[in-house]
Design a binder for these strands. Structure first.
Lengths: 178, 178
DNA sequence: TAGCTCATGTAACTAGTTACATGATTTG
DNA sequence: CAAATCATGTAACTAGTTACATGAGCTA
């Protein structure tokens, strides 16, 4: 799970309420991750119980009170730990959160994780290309169900290619920035 | 939900047991969809209760009995209905299932759905490109957190581009096959 | 004889969605 | 005056994962 960590990244940049976080997720992070307010409230409570974040009840004139959450030492430590931790089963969106939060931990460790995932996607891509060559040597002759099977494989190939190219771009940028 | 429908597609091509379906999902469809045997067994029971599929208990020598599931009339009707039904919130993997099963229903209806999704992804891509131009007019000067934000946006752009190009390829192939 | 494959299942969990509820203020 | 925004929450659901269980036969 990494909604916790996505929230840690967002709250590290700026403290805020559950409502505000919901808005932020609709925009920047929500490019990768959609989270409803119910889910965010639930996770915030869990994070508070774990001692990662602290709450400040803020009274407002005309508006309902809000609970402003701030990342504490334990939260910062957890984020640093998670950013550096290798996770072979991480999805693209989790990787996106790590990239987004790299400056809050060790950017070199994040780059290493990105490298591992680039390699894994490259290997998956090779496997798909092999299947393509073996099962569909001449796509122009395909029709009906075999054509449809081929098209689904093409989607898989494009997805892996996209991942590899993106992660390559990320690595180059990290390298030039280091 | 569409695990039901992914199973309907797979069982329409060939009847089989939950165990066999699990194996199939690890390969062809599992390119897009990973499902554990527990989940598949649970859904198969639900589909049987709904009357979409029928079971045949098959005794085997040396091996445990297996339950071979076959798609019935109600299942075929449901699959046809689902294949033609527009679903704006469908994910790429659900679309992949529809493309894979197009021949089991009305391929023209599936093509129409693919067109709608291509347009939606193209619109999303435009929105991201606008953000890119507005917020990061000169990427070469970026560093640290703003660079990381840019890279995450780049991932979103590449993902949408990949979807648009794939669905374009699908439409061309459908067109030539019709 | 240890581990893999075939084959099905229960139970408990995490993640995420949908519906419902409240109530003040601001905007059209 | 109706609708949107701000702000938090409960409850019930669907989807998916992890752990555990059984037991026969086949392979190294």
């Amino acid at each position: 799970m990494a909604l916790e960590h996505a929230i840690l990244v967002s709250l590290s940049e700026r403290s805020g309420s559950g409502y505000e976080l919901t808005r932020r997720f609709e925009k920047s992070i929500g490019l990768w991750w959609s989270a409803t307010h119910q889910q965010i409230y639930r996770v915030l409570k869990r994070m508070e119980d774990a001692g990662w974040i602290t709450v400040d009840q803020v009274a407002q004139s005309g508006k309902p009170d809000k609970k402003v959450y701030t990342v504490g030492d334990a939260g910062r430590a957890e984020l640093t730990r998670w950013l550096a931790e290798p996770d072979p089963s991480a999805t693209a969106r989790e990787l996106a959160v790590k990239i987004r939060g790299a400056a809050l931990g060790d950017p070199a460790a994040v780059a290493a994780e990105v490298t591992r995932h680039r390699d894994a996607h490259a290997a998956q891509l090779d496997a798909y290309l092999l299947i393509e060559k073996r099962d569909f040597p001449d796509p122009s002759v395909l029709s009906g169900q075999s054509l449809h099977q081929f098209l689904v494989l093409r989607g898989g190939i494009r997805t892996e290619q996209g991942h590899v190219e993106w992660l390559e771009e990320v690595l180059q940028a990290f390298h030039h920035d280091a």
